[in-house]
Amino acid sequence: MTAEEWTAVRLSLLVAVTATAASLPFGIAIAWLLARGRFWGKSLVDTLVHLPLILPPVVTGYLLLILFGKRGPIGEFLNDTFGIVFAFRWTGAALACAVMGFPLMVRAIRLSIEAIDTRLESAAGTLGAHPLFVFATITLPLSLPGVIAGAILCFAKSMGEFGATITFVSNIPGETQTLPSAIYTLTQVPGGDAGALRLTAISVVISMTALLGSELLARSIGARRVAT
């Protein structure tokens, strides 16, 4: 493996982990809102969250470029006030991956929250627990399998995200060239087949490890729950 290939693998892992970790709190909050909230405009929020799932990834990437680019309304604001830059940086790749993985994450978490018996939550309330404490000690632990599944889905999506990423932050080796971009680049140059194949194998291994890991984690949670 060449140094560039390694860089792509490391960058992909960094981007995927960052995208998953950063979007998880928002994913849980939105999932909870959609599962339990009763507010005006709920279906609008639902649609917005699912939009990246149905839009062509290139469109999502282009919208991100318009909004979060150096001259974009949000990008300019973030740059001026916090010094955060997304355009053509690995952070932008992470943002694109997070947006693309978000609907998958929210769906999984929302389903598991909806499956929780709300009567358990009201029982916790009668014992004196504040709603936030109820959420942390009852709702969240009981929806943990869904949270893990959602996080893994988002991670896997991030490892494979191509269209939105390349549109938003381009394909800069060492900065925004993730695994899929690197594979794509290698297939475009003569003699790149061997490298593309190596990266493909690595990609398969990482995805399968993530899936297996989530399976084991979910099983151990389930086992802990039925243990007497």
Partner: peptide, 29 residues
């Protein structure tokens, strides 16, 4: 709100927390 009433409630279905042990259930409050 119910969490500030200090009124205990024993439900028809016991509503024990399934992810906690009996001891943890007892000590929840």
């Amino acid at each position: 709100p119910k969490h500030r009433r200090r009124i205990g409630y024993v439900f028809q279905d016991s509503r024990l927390f399934p992810h906690l042990s009996v001891r943890q259930n007892l000590l929840y409050g």
